[in-house]
Computed example of a mutant assay.
Amino acid sequence: MADLVDFSQPTLYLSAALIIFNPTFWNIAARQEYHHKSITKLAGGNALYGCYGLAVTIFVLGLIRDAVYERALRQQPTHPALLSFVSQGLAVGLVASGNVLVLSSMWALGITGTYLGDYFGILMDDMVTGFPFNVTGSPMYYGSAMSFLGTALWFGRPAGVLLTALVFVAYQVALQYEDPFTAEIYAKREREQKKKAK
Results as ranks from 00 to 15, higher is better:
Y34Q: 14
A30C: 15
G130M: 01
V102N: 02
S97F: 14
N27T: 11
C51S: 15
Q32V: 09
K195V: 14
W107C: 01
L61D: 12
L63R: 05
V161I: 13
P23R: 07
G160L: 08
L123W: 00
D3C: 01
Q75P: 04
T40V: 07
R157D: 00
G53D: 05
A174P: 04
E33K: 09
V86H: 07
Q193F: 01
A55M: 13
T40D: 09
A72I: 06
G150K: 11
F148T: 09
A165C: 09
V135I: 14
I185V: 09
Y171K: 12
M106R: 14
A170H: 11
K188H: 11
G110L: 04
S38I: 03
E70F: 15
L63M: 12
T164V: 02
A29T: 01
L153Y: 10
W107L: 01
G89R: 04
Q172I: 02
G150E: 13
K37T: 11
A2P: 00
L162D: 07
L42T: 03
G44Q: 13
G113M: 03
S144G: 13
G150N: 12
I19N: 10
A2M: 00
A152V: 04
A145L: 06
G156C: 08
L61Y: 12
S105Q: 05
L4K: 08
V169W: 04
P23Y: 07
T136D: 02
I39L: 13
F7M: 08
H79N: 09
L90V: 07
P10A: 10
W26L: 15
F120S: 10
L14W: 14
R65Q: 15
A17W: 09
K41H: 14
V128K: 10
G137M: 05
Y69I: 01
P139K: 03
S84V: 03
C51T: 04
G156H: 05
V92A: 14
R189A: 07
G130H: 06
M106P: 11
R157W: 03
F25L: 13
A47P: 13
T151Y: 11
T151V: 14
P80W: 14
G156N: 06
D125Y: 00
L162C: 11
S104H: 00
K188A: 14
F21A: 12
P132V: 11
Q172E: 10
A108W: 03
L82S: 00
T40C: 06
A183P: 00
E190I: 01
T151P: 05
V5W: 12
L18Y: 11
A47H: 00
M127P: 00
G62W: 09
D3N: 08
P132W: 03
A183Q: 06
T114W: 07
L101P: 01
V135A: 13
I122F: 02
A91Y: 08
T112P: 06
Q75I: 01
F168W: 10
L116T: 00
G160P: 05
E184H: 10
T114P: 04
Q88D: 12
K196H: 08
G137H: 06
L103Q: 04
S105A: 15
L109Y: 01
L123N: 05
F155P: 09
V167I: 08
L149K: 11
A72W: 07
E192I: 10
T129F: 07
L153T: 02
D66H: 02
P132F: 08
W154F: 14
A170T: 11
L14H: 10
E190Q: 13
A81P: 00
V68F: 12
A67C: 07
S105F: 01
G117D: 02
H79T: 07
V86D: 11
Y13M: 03
Y52H: 15
Q88R: 06
